[in-house]
Amino acid sequence: MEIRPADSGIPLDTLDRRIVGALQIDGRAEISRMAAVLEVSPRTVTRRLQRMQRAGVLRVVRTTGTAQAVGATVLRVRVLRGKVDTIAESFARRPDVLTADIVLGGEEINVVLTGGPLTRDRLLHHQLPATGAVVSTTAHSVLHVFADAAHWRADALTSDQIAALAPAPAGIGAFATDALDERLLALLGKDARLPHATLAQLAETPESTVRRRLRRLTDAGMLRTHVVIDPRLLGMDIDAALWLNVPPARLREVGDALAAHPHTHAVAATTGPANLIAAVYCPDLAALFAFTTDVLGPLGVTSAETAIISRTAKPVGAQQLRPLSPSPAPAPSPRS
């Protein structure tokens, strides 16, 4: 079965989706290992993976741990009708913006800002108020992350395949990284599948050292990867942001339950009118309705505001802006 959204590039069949699923389990999984688990030839895996990478529909990047997202700011920015692309593109250009989504209707942008307090306050108190196109802004501080984008898995593999691909961490715990560790992590930021030999050349260190360092970083949970791909290519046509109210005594229980659900790709406890936010992928609106009634209802969620994401100006893991329209973008309004 092929899935090809009208504007999302090449079609992906069942094997392509399984390769994506394998990379979601281990972004640096070797071709031979993926081929053995998926029961195809290494040549086939290589050819399929290169096809997706060359078409620009798949990229594997390094991502930080969930603990580092605590303290991030989630913004709900309402803008004048007709100005959403200009403001969204401005946010997407900022290196301190993790993701920027345009809500259906074109009058709101959801932004995750990872900068420190000075950067945040400068944006909130000076730059956005000076932008005539911004109507209002609501800011929520992230208190706890139950799941982030790197947790989400395409429903493409069996439980046995997942177990076979999952790396076996030694559980050595975090440690103080040195200059070489940081150099390797930086090199993997844009392409987490860089071969050991390439990393060794770029870092000017022996390949055996690179292998040893990466294994230690992986075992300590410091080398996490994230597959950047349009979820519509995996059969998930609906992306929705949920702003939830949960009784405080059940906040951790509900957060853990939502994080374990296959539809969610982000769950966090926040300050503000809603104390829990979740981002979900669903095949269609009927599935989103079922999620609301059959998942949120039994969990005791007292209220839920649902916002459909119509477009993503900057997906998690993006290194540069993806234009939202064919016309040249105007000069950005909020400046970093």
Rank of each mutant, 00 (worst) to 15 (best):
M1P: 10
I3H: 06
D7K: 12
S8Q: 14
G9V: 02
G9P: 04
I10G: 08
D13T: 02
L15V: 08
D16H: 14
L23K: 00
D26V: 02
D26A: 11
A29L: 03
E30N: 00
I31D: 05
S32M: 01
R33T: 01
M34K: 01
A35I: 00
A36C: 00
A36I: 01
V37M: 03
L38G: 00
E39W: 00
R43Y: 13
T44H: 10
T44K: 11
T44M: 08
T46G: 04
R48E: 05
R48W: 06
Q50S: 14
A67N: 09
A69W: 12
A69P: 00
G71C: 07
T73V: 12
L75A: 04
R76N: 10
V77N: 01
R81C: 02
V84M: 10
D85H: 14
A88F: 09
F91Q: 02
A92T: 05
A92H: 12
R93P: 00
I102T: 07
V103G: 05
G106P: 10
L128V: 11
L128A: 14
A130H: 06
A130T: 09
T131W: 12
T131N: 12
G132H: 13
V134I: 15
T137V: 15
A139W: 08
H140K: 06
S141L: 14
V142M: 06
H144R: 14
A150P: 02
H151Q: 13
A154E: 07
A163R: 15
P167N: 05
A168M: 07
A176D: 15
D178Y: 12
L180E: 07
E182M: 12
L188Q: 03
L188F: 03
A192D: 02
A197L: 13
E207D: 11
E207P: 00
R211P: 02
R211K: 14
R212E: 15
R213P: 04
L217R: 02
T218F: 09
T225G: 09
H226P: 02
D230H: 07
P231E: 11
R232Q: 13
M236P: 00
D237Q: 14
N245E: 13
P248T: 12
P248G: 08
P248I: 12
A249N: 09
E253H: 08
G255K: 02
G255D: 06
D256A: 10
P262L: 05
A269Y: 01
G272W: 03
A274T: 03
A279R: 11
V280T: 03
C282M: 07
P283G: 04
P283F: 04
A287C: 06
A290R: 12
F291Y: 10
T293R: 08
P298R: 04
L299E: 06
G300Q: 11
V301L: 07
V301S: 01
S303G: 09
E305I: 14
T306P: 01
I309C: 15
S310V: 10
R311P: 04
T312M: 15
K314I: 07
G317C: 11
G317V: 05
A318V: 05
Q320Y: 09
L321W: 10
S327E: 13
P332W: 05
R335V: 15
S336P: 15
